[in-house]
Design a protein around this nucleic acid. Structure first.
Length: 912
RNA sequence: GGGGAUAUAGCUCAGCUGGUAGAGCGUCUGAAUGGCAUUCAGAAGGUCAGGGGUUCGACUCCCCUUAUCUCCA
């Protein structure tokens, strides 16, 4: 058989199913932001999960695709295995075809056979089929629909041939196709035996049951087909290679690794080469789809993959960052099928380079810690590097244990790996135990419409808002146990319910008899929270619902501004910018997106300029209601949100056809001019690689100005009169200006903000100058005072008695602050050549004591300042200590000072 | 979600069982040299991350918060 490229194989698969009336769909992102239960896309069916669960539908009944998948860390794949053999991967492509309630086993089996044997020309006598032990239907179809050797159809049990999505949910029997690559042909018992030469290449799953909580199976009204075939494996089989890495999916990357490191792809180098080639594919695809290496969740999986690749690069004697250099090769080879990696190329390289640098830093720190441990143990005769220390290096400082082993061996030591593994097990047990304690509190049933309510057809329509309110009736009222909150359901609900980052509306309900209830929150479209409901019977009573109109309009300004900001960010920073989180309230808007460095002042200025230009253009905001999903997807540059699921019909909000279009269920201004001024007030990092922007619009700008005035006032109030007077005047003017300001006048707002910024700037300069002046003054004072104290100390010492040639000095010092007291402590020893001195000072009503003893007396008489001072301190109701030369203490009994000082002198005389 | 670690001068970090906050590099000043590299002498520079507690006294011990690093899930 001649060489067939991976590109041809991928294309022929899709073409084959297209000819069988399948819709070819793009791969879903490998990073499933909308599915919290899944770290990475790990099978082709992920994007159709909602269909199988009966929650969603598609425009088509047959589909085929090649799906980007990542399996790392979980049950399916141990990261440490990748590269060692020829068929484990972190990243791979899964070819698949699906039927949603359309064709079933017969076609699935016939077509699979046709593709494998007629299109790809695999020898029929080398193929084996397996079916679920009781699935006679599939067994017979293999016999009637294909010309497979009947002795090559085998039955297996649950483990191999029954597929389940989870503990409950859709499931069914499957039928696998295995290929025999042995030299002389295999026997039936070799299938599913884990042999390298007899491998499964295609799994056909027939979803026909739903498993309930009791574990019982119920037939599904709609039966589905879900198949999966690993591209890497197929390419290897069709090209008769021993290893997946010997295919054109990997060889260009392996060549590039060889070029960079100068090593040949042979012998002990094969496994690191393979692993690096595998890992760079995973990293490139995952980062392109929006994941970023970090210390938790999927980001952490990426970090581990990247660090493993770097560790293995060291086995190729290459210690420099090199992974980012491989991105180009990946993009050249896969950018045609997956254009997203081409678009994000530079971003991916930057992220990888940054992470490589950060790992090098971690390694440097780890080496230091290794040295510390080694210094401690180097003279040990057993030459064992303790497992606890190796674990600590790994656990706390991220230093890979294999590097510890290498470094230990270089010094003739061996790491105690048994102990290391024990520590690791403890760590895992801890994490697992903590997981069990989790309690799920969410009472979701509270916010679902029951059958009775559904029959009433309650309407959720927050879009056509009027200040006059809307008349409707009350369908339900339920108290939340243990609270003063009541949950109401209206026939028509005009209150927006939190979604897509936009906060819920507030407002009030007014009943015909004048009874009013305040609306404080809305959940799941229909459920309205009110406070202090007095339990009168309101069932089916007429009510007028008033949304807090002013607040809603402020929210809408921020929401529309968020859309403009999103597109402006993409224009200024690049198209890797995606919404990772968003909050739209009446006060401000918040927007999170992936970006690897701080935004510069210039970038922020540009972004604001673009948004404000669009505002001053007063562009009409279009809402396309109830658009078919497919049509919506075709809108150029349309943005979807993570965290939202879309049905077959969607809502699009568009501002300027060439600028911004987003899937969005939120409410917006009529035209952009209503927004007023847009101003970014803060830009920060919330985790590595993720930035957060806070911005304000419209009335929020006025609030911003007012907040700033308060800031300025508090600064001014700290300043002395000579600096503050002119600012006080300016403040009054601004306050007056704000009162009469019109927030829709964007240029006026802009002027006010600029003027204010300048004021704050010059104010801060003056403040710093003032603080510096004050500080210098205090220092000068301190010096002067200390000079005085030293004089006092000297005079006390000079006028003290001497006993046997040694001075015995004691006295009170006139010191007010503990700073000054600290400063004079070592001056005492300087002034005291031969003798003992004890000084006391009362600071803040407490006694501070210091005692000094000259060196000769410590040696000759065994005196200790620490002991002496603690005796005196005890007398005075305190304690203290220190070294023999010098000690300090504190006490409370101020009246006793003079007596204790006298006592001290007379006691000492006896000792000298 | 759970565990470990770190936060001290502009930078890199010491600081023991509570009792005088330090080093190296950098900065500034001065000296040596025709200039630079360099050498020597001196100086400035600290809310010991923030907040609470224990204590006569906390950089040090305890608790909380924040930020960063790291491992496990």
């Amino acid at each position: 058989m001649n060489f067939i490229s991976s590109k041809e194989i991928r294309e022929s698969f899709l073409k084959f199913f297209e000819s069988k009336n399948h819709t070819i769909v793009p791969s879903s992102p490998v990073v499933p932001f909308e599915d919290q239960t899944l770290l990475f896309a790990n099978a082709g069916m992920n994007q159709f999960k909602d269909v199988f669960l009966g929650l969603g539908t598609r425009e088509y009944k047959r589909a085929a695709d090649t799906q980007k998948c990542i399996r790392a860390g979980g049950k399916h794949n141990d990261l440490e295995e990748v590269g060692v053999d020829g068929y484990h991967h972190t990243f791979f492509e899964m070819l698949g075809n699906w039927s949603f309630g359309d064709y079933y086993k017969k076609e699935a089996i016939a077509w699979a056979w046709e593709l494998l044997t007629e299109v790809w020309k695999l020898p029929k006598d080398r193929l084996w089929a397996t079916v679920y032990k009781s699935d006679e239907e599939a067994l017979n179809l293999w016999k009637t629909e294909t010309d497979i050797n009947h002795s090559h159809i085998l039955k297996f049990g649950e483990k191999d041939n029954f597929w389940e999505m989870g503990e409950t949910g859709p499931c069914g029997p499957c039928s696998e196709i295995h290929v025999d690559l042995t030299d002389n042909g295999c026997k039936p018992e070799d299938v599913n035996a884990g042999l390298e030469d007899v491998i499964e290449i295609w799994n056909l799953v027939f979803i026909q049951y739903n498993r309930d909580e009791k574990g019982e199976l119920h037939p599904l009204p709609m039966k589905h087909v879900d198949t999966g075939m690993g591209l890497e494996r197929v390419v290897r089989v069709l090209n008769k290679k021993k290893s997946n890495y010997d295919t054109d999916l990997f060889t260009p990357i392996l060549d590039k690794i060889g070029k960079i490191t100068g090593k040949k792809y042979e012998g002990e180098y094969i496994s690191p080469f393979n692993a690096i080639a595998d890992h760079i594919r995973a990293l490139t695809f995952a980062i392109s789809d929006g994941a970023i290496p970090s210390n938790e969740g999927r980001g952490y999986v990426l970090r581990r993959i990247l660090r493993r690749a770097l560790r293995l690069a060291r086995k190729l004697d290459y210690n420099e960052p090199m992974l980012h250099e491989l991105v180009d090769t990946v993009v050249t080879n896969f950018g045609g099928v997956f254009p997203e990696i081409r678009d994000k190329k530079d971003f991916v390289k930057n992220v990888i380079k940054a992470e490589e640098d950060s790992f090098n830093l971690t390694l440097d720190r780890g080496i230091e810690h290794f040295q510390n441990v080694y210094e401690r143990i180097k003279n040990n005769s057993d030459k064992v590097f303790p497992g606890e220390d190796a674990f600590k290096l790994y656990d706390t400082y991220g230093f890979p244990v294999d590097l510890t082993q290498v470094m230990a061996r270089e010094n003739g030591f061996e790491v105690d790996m048994k102990k290391f593994d024990e520590e690791m097990k403890k760590q895992k047990d801890r994490a697992r135990a903590a997981r069990k304690d989790e309690v799920i509190l969410a009472d979701t049933k509270m916010f679902e419409l029951d059958e009775k309510l559904k029959a009433e057809n309650p309407v959720y329509n927050p879009y056509n808002l009027s200040e006059k309110g809307i008349k409707t009736t009350l369908l339900q009222a339920k108290r939340i146990a243990g609270s003063d909150l009541e949950v109401l359901v209206l026939k028509d609900n005009p209150f927006y319910s939190e979604s897509g980052g936009q906060v819920s509306d507030t407002g009030k309900l007014v009943f015909a008899d004048g009874y009013e209830l305040e609306v404080i929150d809305v959940k799941n479209n229909h459920f309205i929270y009110v406070k202090n409901y007095d339990h009168r019977n309101l069932f089916r009573k007429e009510v007028t619902a008033f949304v807090d109109y002013k607040r809603r309009r402020a929210i809408q300004r921020n929401h529309s501004a968020t859309h403009l900001l999103h597109e402006a960010l993409r224009e200024v920073l690049g198209n890797h910018v995606k919404q990772m989180g968003s909050l739209v309230s009446d006060e401000y808007l918040r927007f999170d997106f992936p970006h690897f460095k701080k935004l510069s002042a210039e970038e922020i200025r540009k972004i604001e300029e673009i948004v404000n230009d669009k505002i001053s253009g007063n562009i009409k905001v279009d809402t396309l209601e109830d658009l078919p999903l497919e049509e919506a997807n075709n809108i150029p540059n349309v943005k979807k949100f993570f965290g939202d699921k879309y049905g077959s019909r969607v809502r699009i909000v568009r501002m300027d056809e060439n600028f911004s279009a987003e899937f969005c269920g939120g409410t917006h201004v009529a035209s952009t001019g209503d927004i007023g001024l847009f101003k970014i007030v803060k830009e920060e990092s919330i985790s590595s690689g993720v930035r957060r922007i806070f911005a304000r619009t419209g009335e929020g700008i006025i609030r911003l100005i007012e907040e700033r005035i308060n800031d300025i006032e508090s600064i001014v109030s700290e300043l002395p009169e000579k600096y503050s007077s002119k600012f006080k005047e300016a403040l009054e003017k601004i306050r007056d200006g704000v009162k009469s300001a019109d927030y829709t006048d964007a240029s006026m707002m802009k002027l006010m903000l600029e003027h204010q910024s300048n004021t704050i700037k010059s104010l801060n300069e003056i403040r710093e100058k003032f603080i510096e002046e004050k500080k210098q003054q205090q220092k000068k004072m301190l010096k002067q005072n200390i000079g005085r104290h030293i004089e006092q100390i000297k005079s006390i010492i000079d006028s003290s008695e001497t006993v046997n040639g040694s001075t015995v000095a004691a006295g009170r010092l006139d010191i007010q602050t503990s700073d000054e007291f600290k400063e004079i402590v070592d001056e005492i020893r300087k002034a005291l050549k031969n003798g003992v001195a004890l000084f006391a000072a009362v600071i803040d009503g407490k006694i501070n004591l210091v005692c000094a003893v000259s060196d000769n007396l410590i040696k000759e008489k065994g005196l200790s300042a620490g002991k002496l001072i603690s005796e005196t301190a005890k007398e005075l109701g305190g304690g203290g200590g220190g070294r023999p030369q010098l000690a300090t203490a504190g006490a409370r009994n101020v009246e006793g000072i003079d007596a204790s000082l006298a006592n001290f002198v007379s006691n000492l005389k006896l000792k000298l």
